[in-house]
């Protein structure tokens, strides 16, 4: 179990994480969804004890990571965003080494290494040096090294970045399998689809702050029934804002000289009405996107920006 309470991490003037609270329970995947630079990796570093928090506490399996690091880290597995492998060693040597680091040795380590290599689909490549592997294979091995000691808490920091679709699906299945064994999984990503498919509960973070939290249904309710209409072009605030206020069953999310974001009920059918209104109010539309209500639209609704910006 992971318990993060009022976590703050500040580097000089930069606040990387601000007053973050979260709890990841055994047998669930807790997602941290946010764009690059949102503070996801810093949060993982604080939870894994690599970085000391400026304020707040982190407890892993009930042990404070700063005060009882050894006890807290005993059941912890980490799959970092950047590959953390010995490229000159074979896949099996890598997995056996990480098993040994966590106290598994001899026959038990060899058996467990074979088991996880098989689970990640590398059973027949175990004796090959890692430097010969493809990116996707390395990602899977990176994952295997993080779970070889059967952790009760697993931290996954964007494990699918740069992975081919086939390997991504495989990795997501592996994460789900870990959850099913009772492991508490903290999963950071900026892929909305992954978060939707995998996570039991989610926190959406931006600029180091948590801006929403809940399970998928709760978050969808935050979005509401309205779709998002994202318009690019040139817009005049003075004329457009009053005109949009008269648009039925709609809400203005963001209006800038180059951008207009609206939440509109039944947007696909009413798009012509919206464009006509904008045009009549002096707006010059060059780009139009309609998004159905999802996590991405929730992020846009909450921050005014797209998740991948």
């Amino acid at each position: 179990m992971i318990e993060v309470d009022s976590l703050v991490k500040q580097y000089d003037e930069l606040v990387a994480v601000s007053e973050l609270d979260l709890v990841a329970k055994p047998g669930e995947v807790f997602g941290l969804l946010g764009p690059n630079g949102a503070g996801k990796s810093t949060t993982i570093s604080c939870i894994s004890g690599l970085v000391a928090p400026t304020r707040g506490t982190v407890r892993v399996n009930g042990h404070d990571i700063q005060r009882e690091p050894k006890a807290a880290k005993t059941g912890l597995g980490v799959v970092p965003q950047d590959l953390a492998l010995y490229e000159d060693l074979s896949a099996a040597e890598n997995v056996r080494f990480w098993a040994g680091i966590h106290g598994l040795g001899g026959k038990a380590a060899a058996e467990r290494a074979a088991e996880v290599l098989s689970a990640v689909g590398l059973a027949d490549r175990g004796s090959e040096p890692v430097k010969n592997f493809s990116g996707g294979m390395k990602r899977r091995l990176n994952f295997a090294c993080g779970i070889v000691h059967r952790p009760t808490v697993l931290l996954l920091d964007e494990p699918t970045v740069g992975v081919d679709p086939q390997s991504r699906v495989h990795l997501l299945e592996l994460v789900a399998a870990q959850r099913d064994t009772g492991t508490a999984v903290l999963y950071t990503t900026h892929y909305m689809e992954e978060a939707s498919a995998l996570c039991d509960r989610l926190a959406i973070v931006d600029g180091g702050k948590k801006i929403a939290e809940g399970d998928l249904d709760e978050l969808r309710r935050l979005v509401g029934e309205r779709d998002l209409v994202l318009l690019g072009g040139r817009f005049e605030d003075e004329r457009l804002a009053p005109a949009l206020a008269g648009l039925a069953d709609a809400e203005l999310i963001q209006l800038s000289p180059e951008r207009l974001h609206l939440a509109v009920a039944d947007a696909p059918r009413r798009l012509a009405e919206v464009l006509s209104l904008v045009s009549a109010s002096g707006g010059d539309v060059t780009e139009t996107t309609v998004r159905r209500a999802d996590l991405e639209s929730l992020f846009i609704k909450l921050t005014g920006r797209e998740l991948r910006e």
């Binding site: 880290k73 990480w98 680091i101």
Partner: peptide
């Protein structure tokens, strides 16, 4: 630089 040091530090080994 290879990331293994950080991963080692996240283990119970000091």
């Amino acid at each position: 630089d290879g990331g293994t040091w950080a991963r080692l530090l996240a283990s119970p080994i000091g």
